[in-house]
Design a protein around this nucleic acid. Structure first.
Lengths: 240, 240
DNA sequence: TGTACATCAGTGAACGCGCGTTCACTGATGTAC
DNA sequence: TGTACATCAGTGAACGCGCGTTCACTGATGTAC
């Protein structure tokens, strides 16, 4: 599936002018697609409209992108990566011992990204795009935020701060996930998965408009919710 | 906006053969639309395809439905009503004193409906339909499940079973909602809203495929999650 | 009960639009000797 | 450094498709006297 780069060793930076131009134009196409996505749903994403925005013939797009679906795949992967990176970067600035601070930082970063990019958010956490099947590549970037939250819970367990001993509720999660998460026992792991789920539940309700005329102070509500979810996941939250 | 019914008093059942046929065909159109929705996203809902499925000219649809958007509105309202009714009917069969039983019954009914009608679910809890603005009519049916859950929490409060005294966290919720919910204090109300949100978070993750290779035993996980959310909302859950 | 008129259901053609993708082709950019 | 050839970017026309909505029209169903 990778385009055959002649001999300059796939992974290195583009060398010739052609390769540079190619990389730049591909990026411009993806950017234009992202831009168009902001005004319209993923189903209405149009290669012709992108070509128009870039001032080129519609057929020229096919020099850079094999098909509309491939472009959508690219946008989905990029979105997962963007939100993952935002969360990781923000969380990394917090003192390691401050578990609640890290939890709040990570979840706030996800929310901020979602509010800033609602259509990209909808692309990955809204309705599945009809007729679109996620390739396996998107599974890794999709897990970044979840793994980040899990690492916080793992650190909490390592420092003995997790609220509940680890035993019950076995057999509910996928064995692969049980192995991939910090070994805190399945009850706590399930709590982490539930909290991770609810994070996106809260953000989706806000982004998709279900909190209209329901929640007035969104920032305060979000922090409040995240603290209650942190406690649900076993983190030591005093009051909240 | 209501079609002018000559003199037989808007609300009564259709009398003449014409009125009966009209009501039936309108229902058939809505049913065909719902049927088509199952194979395709809301953006691709096509009046022409519906006409084809019903064996009539595409222009004939306009005798029954003013526009494509009106039909979408109708589908959205119907979906909210259907899920609300499913939850209410199931919850009503449970002994009033069995608060956890009622909570589980209601939430399980929502999940069952969502799994049975994933595309209708996506219509109301997935990405907003682009270019579509919800009319005010959809706000009441949209609140049915939330009010049902609230009534359980209200009964719990009335029987003194709610876990936490009602005080902190004022000013976060919309005043109208605070007034509409049982007067258990804003902290508990916010907990109810959070649990209601998380219910849809869990269901969305399952319906939209985010639990693929993550949660193995979906039924057991859901019950487990609902019990933890019930406790989060203040219901007296022993273990879980 | 019968006739004259108004209302409505349904038709088929048309308007104007947009889409993804393919294809033969022209120039420009690279490569090898 | 210069020439001959291969590779690639970009074009414009075309294919075949589907869409929402409008409009003038034909028959059938109702209504009023």
């Amino acid at each position: 599936m990778l385009s055959k780069v002649p001999y300059c060793g796939g992974m290195s930076a583009p060398r010739t002018a052609r390769e540079r131009a190619r990389a730049e134009l591909t990026a411009e196409i993806v950017a234009a697609a992202r831009h168009q996505l902001a005004g319209v749903g993923p189903t209405d994403l149009s290669l012709r409209a992108i070509a128009r925005e870039l001032g080129m013939a519609s057929s020229a797009i096919y020099r850079y992108v094999p098909s509309r679906d491939a472009l959508l795949t690219r946008l989905i992967e990029d979105a997962y990566d963007a939100v993952g990176e935002a969360a990781e970067a923000t969380e990394a600035d917090v003192e390691r011992d401050d578990l609640i601070g890290r939890w709040l930082a990570a979840t706030r970063a996800v929310r901020a990204w979602a509010l800033a990019h609602p259509h990209e958010y909808a692309l990955i956490y809204g309705s599945p795009v009809p007729g679109y099947e996620a390739p396996t590549d998107t599974i890794d970037p999709a897990g970044r935020v979840g793994l980040l939250l899990a690492s916080i819970l793992g650190d909490a367990a390592a420092s003995g701060a997790l609220a509940r001993p680890a035993d019950e509720g076995a057999g509910v999660l996928d064995p692969g996930v049980v192995a991939a998460l910090p070994p805190v026992g399945e009850w706590l792991q399930a709590g982490g998965i539930l909290a991770w789920t609810c994070l996106y539940g809260v953000i989706s309700f806000e982004v998709f408009g279900h909190y209209e005329n329901v929640v007035a102070d969104r920032d305060a509500y979000f922090d409040h919710a995240m603290l209650r979810l942190a406690r649900l996941a076993g983190l030591p939250v005093f009051d909240g």
